[in-house]
Nucleic acid binder design. Structure first.
Lengths: 117, 117
DNA sequence: TCCATGTTTCCATGATTATGGAAACATGGG
DNA sequence: CCCATGTTTCCATAATCATGGAAACATGGA
């Protein structure tokens, strides 16, 4: 999955992971760029760079409201990532994988390739 | 979480993600380095580099068996990552997050910080 | 329109990461 | 022992990524 890789790449960076966590906590309304930067101690230019990365990976969205831009976490996209990882974790040996309750994706049980001997 | 970041970084790379997926499919016994490289078309030196990354992140383990080295996926560590992401996804607004069945981690409900207004 | 405030783009710099051939190292069979 | 086979380390190179100041751009209030 292409988007899973993109999401992983986006989150695999300390500042971006912190920003995303902050936005998840901020709830669906999200938070303005200024506040995020203030809360996390990230300079504007740097934050803008990371927000663009997150946005490009589809993990956050933004909306303009008067002079401010609000960024918010994209829960569906995070769900997609979790679903992808769950499948990757459990494929073939569900018992070895403690998750035990993968989200009901249509492809959860389909496409079970066998490893060539 | 430090290890979550390490796991994300390790998986956020096309070749490594492919290797991990391959190892998950290979099952608990895992697969030898040679076969992995052969199956995925990755040169030995490159593969060794990536296996070291995955291993360092705790996502795979290795054991020597005669002249071969078998690498296998570390399911618990993947579970840890999924649990971490699930918490990050659902914290505050479980309803917005379709996962609906987070693994029963002790910290699932604890540590719910509030975002400063 | 002019100004204050919020955000992004530009850009130069430094740091990290990926790649793969060649050589070194390890293991076990003969 | 010596050799074949499997794996890793070494190393140089190239590419990508992170950082943050300064300047540009956007928006809305006076």
């Amino acid at each position: 999955m292409k988007s899973a890789l993109a999401a992983l790449s986006a989150l695999a960076q300390e500042t971006r992971l912190a920003v995303f966590r902050y936005l998840v906590e901020a709830g669906p309304e999200g938070m303005t760029v200024g506040r995020i930067g203030e809360a996390l101690g990230v300079p504007a230019a740097t934050l803008s760079f990371h927000l663009k990365e997150l946005s490009h990976a589809g993990l956050v969205s933004s909306r303009q409201e008067s002079r401010f831009i609000w960024y918010s976490a994209n829960y569906e996209s995070m769900n997609g990532l979790i679903a992808y990882l769950t499948e990757n974790c459990c494929r073939g040996q569900p018992e070895a994988c403690g998750v035990g309750c993968a989200p009901q994706t249509k492809s959860s049980t389909a496409s079970r390739k066998k490893v060539p001997a």
